[in-house]
Amino acid sequence: MKHITYQTHKRHKAYVSLFGTTQLHLRNPYIIAWWSAAFPGFGHLLLSKNITGLLLFIWEVYTNIHANINVAMVYSFTGRLEEARSILDTRWALLYIPVYLFAVWDSYRTTIDINKVYVLAEHQNEPFDIFKMGALEVHYLDKRSPLVAVMWSILMPGSGQLYIHRIIIGFFSLIWVVVFFYQSQFLPAIHFLFLGDIPSSTSVLNIEWLLFLPSIYGFSAYDAYVNTIENNKLYDREQADFLSQNYQQYRFSLKQRL
């Protein structure tokens, strides 16, 4: 007679690696979907689905530039509708729309699924490593200041992620913000503005690339702020579990508030 063994699948709340801390926590699906609508890829990056997020991000930039969507938006907002219609490349715009809608839908669906997995992981409460050291990097779980993370993100997108050790997102944000600065001629425009030469400051700007900057600034600040808070919560919970398992008397019972 065969014995049937049931395998219990372990669900960890977090994973600490040399490239950062990846964790599960409850998220609002509408907020994640909104970030995907603001810039495809951002919603997935907030969910730590880095490969999908980076692919959608690159697709957004490449297709947007070829379809002249940002320029058409500027013309539309300023009432120049005929120029917006003439400059929009429908060959690329029709390719842009399906992927854009997929990014919003998939980020919303994935958020709901991850929230369900988080509930199971919270119930199992499996332990995880909080310290990683290798030849290239050292990473450990500790508490950081959310305001400091936001401050660095405002000064330079990606710096806030490096502060909380989100290496992949931080490196990616730094590279792309340099590309946006260079292509949009934003820094030369600021230079002319400081000199009082306003006509040169406005004429040198490349609006097509400039419109990418607000999105990456907002995402970098929001991502750094939210992940700093969630990392701090994870640190407090891990410390509480460690103290209760190693120093709390077995007869003592304390109900934890989640």
Rank of each mutant, 00 (worst) to 15 (best):
H3K: 14
T5P: 04
Y6S: 09
Q7F: 10
S17M: 08
S17H: 09
L18V: 10
L18C: 13
T21L: 11
Q23R: 15
Q23G: 06
L24C: 10
I32V: 11
I32G: 00
S36K: 04
S36W: 02
F39Y: 03
P40M: 05
G43P: 01
L45R: 01
I51N: 10
T52P: 05
L55S: 13
T63C: 08
H66G: 05
N68I: 08
N68M: 09
N68H: 10
I69C: 01
A72S: 14
S76C: 07
F77E: 12
T78Y: 06
G79V: 07
R80Y: 09
E82I: 10
E82A: 13
R85V: 12
R85T: 12
S86Y: 14
I87T: 14
D89F: 06
R91E: 11
W92L: 07
Y96E: 02
Y96W: 07
P98W: 11
V104F: 04
W105M: 11
W105R: 09
D106P: 07
S107W: 02
R109I: 03
T110G: 02
T111R: 03
K116C: 03
V117W: 06
L120Q: 12
A121R: 04
H123D: 15
H123I: 10
Q124R: 14
E126C: 12
E126V: 14
F128T: 08
F131I: 15
L136W: 12
H139K: 14
Y140R: 13
K143M: 13
L147D: 11
L147N: 15
A149G: 12
A149C: 11
S153L: 02
M156P: 00
S159R: 04
L162N: 00
Y163L: 09
I164R: 03
I169E: 02
G170R: 00
F172Q: 00
I175D: 05
W176C: 03
F181T: 01
Y182D: 08
S184K: 01
Q185L: 06
L187K: 09
A189R: 03
H191Y: 11
I198F: 15
S201P: 06
T202R: 15
S203F: 07
V204D: 04
W209F: 04
W209I: 01
W209N: 00
F212T: 00
L213K: 00
L213S: 01
P214A: 03
I216V: 04
I216P: 00
A221R: 05
Y222L: 09
D223T: 03
Y225I: 08
N227W: 03
T228I: 09
N231M: 11
N231V: 11
K233D: 05
L234S: 08
Y235E: 15
R237Y: 09
Q239V: 09
D241M: 15
S244N: 13
Q249E: 11
Y250L: 13
Q256H: 15
Q256A: 09
Q256L: 11
L258K: 12
